[in-house]
Amino acid sequence: MSRVYETIPELLSMKSYPKELFYDGDLNLLKRTKISIVGSRKPTQYSRQMIQKLSSSLSKNGICVVSGGAMGIDATAHSGAGSSNTIAVLPCGIDLRYPAVNKNLLNEIQKSGLLLSQFEHGFTATPWSFVVRNELVVALGDVLVVGEADVDSGTMRSVEFALKMKKEIYVLPQRLGESSGTNQLARDSLAKVIYDIDEFVSKFSLSQNIEPIIKDDFIAFCTTNPTYDEALVKYPQRIFEAELSGEIEIRNGRILVI
């Protein structure tokens, strides 16, 4: 664990610049164009899939993804970007792994990406430290993408930070009755809707040649919630690779996309 001593310009938009900032990993990621992505800890399969595609496309086009290392949308954003193209801001000390379920993901980010925290070695997460973490996540990004959120969720606190910092907010198009928070933001014209991922990425990419999203037929098939036997017959080799890499999970004999 080391301290960050140089001033990070993006953090001047915070209510108060961090008194201390600790890191482990590659500080050069701070110099890249950055997009912050936040959202529900229990997102729908659709939101996971779209955030996975979005973060993957951002990463392939040289854009760093910033999130909070939590379950759900955060973990999907980090994994979609790849450990070497993402910054995880923690609500605890750099030496701790919270939540424990993301231990392997955070270890990979430590090795080739960047972990940031405003908290000393050994500090355990508390309700207020999540709020502190959220402000830092929002401040680092050029804009904020909200993958999914209910109206009264903690994610909407991040939206409040973005509004105070006068950052643009983007949301995914969602079905009625789902993600009430992002639907409200779009309805009230407080957020723009991402209807085309390539078009969104092109706004921030330095290259005019945006690398298109490559459709993965196997993952598309798995989003239909097939049985394990059906997937094994259709994609015998791919199913083992996907399970090992954590792309899918097998529950009660059926395939779920992670």
Rank of each mutant, 00 (worst) to 15 (best):
14 M>P: 04
210 I>H: 04
115 L>M: 02
204 F>W: 03
250 I>A: 01
171 V>T: 01
55 S>D: 04
114 L>E: 03
94 I>F: 02
128 W>Q: 06
176 L>P: 10
40 S>A: 15
96 L>Y: 10
213 I>F: 08
79 S>G: 01
240 F>D: 11
243 E>I: 08
179 S>H: 11
232 L>V: 03
202 S>F: 10
241 E>Q: 14
129 S>R: 07
46 Y>W: 14
244 L>K: 12
176 L>V: 01
191 A>D: 05
117 S>Q: 10
156 M>I: 12
18 P>S: 07
204 F>L: 02
88 A>K: 06
117 S>W: 00
47 S>M: 14
69 G>V: 02
228 Y>G: 00
84 S>K: 06
35 I>C: 04
37 I>A: 04
40 S>H: 12
233 V>A: 05
210 I>M: 03
165 M>S: 05
80 G>Q: 07
93 G>F: 12
122 G>W: 06
171 V>P: 02
130 F>P: 01
254 R>I: 10
249 E>L: 15
79 S>M: 13
39 G>K: 13
258 I>V: 14
252 N>T: 04
2 S>A: 15
51 I>Y: 10
183 N>F: 02
3 R>W: 15
169 I>T: 03
168 E>N: 11
49 Q>E: 15
191 A>I: 12
10 E>L: 00
18 P>C: 08
195 Y>M: 06
89 V>C: 02
22 F>G: 00
220 A>C: 14
174 Q>S: 14
107 N>L: 14
13 S>A: 13
95 D>L: 15
146 V>P: 00
141 G>C: 08
90 L>A: 06
166 K>V: 06
56 S>T: 08
24 D>Q: 10
32 R>M: 06
215 K>G: 06
85 N>W: 09
239 I>D: 00
127 P>F: 09
135 E>T: 02
152 D>G: 05
258 I>R: 13
142 D>Q: 02
201 V>Q: 03
190 L>Q: 06
114 L>S: 04
183 N>P: 02
26 D>Q: 08
152 D>L: 04
158 S>N: 09
3 R>F: 15
13 S>D: 11
14 M>T: 11
179 S>F: 03
198 D>A: 10
26 D>S: 09
33 T>Y: 01
27 L>D: 01
162 A>S: 11
113 G>R: 06
156 M>K: 07
126 T>L: 12
257 V>N: 08
177 G>C: 05
244 L>S: 13
33 T>N: 02
60 K>Q: 11
68 G>L: 13
177 G>A: 08
118 Q>A: 04
156 M>A: 01
77 A>R: 01
230 E>S: 13
131 V>W: 03
186 A>R: 04
7 T>C: 15
251 R>F: 11
42 K>R: 14
246 G>V: 12
113 G>H: 07
117 S>V: 02
195 Y>C: 02
189 S>R: 15
20 E>A: 08
112 S>P: 07
103 K>I: 13
148 E>M: 14
169 I>C: 05
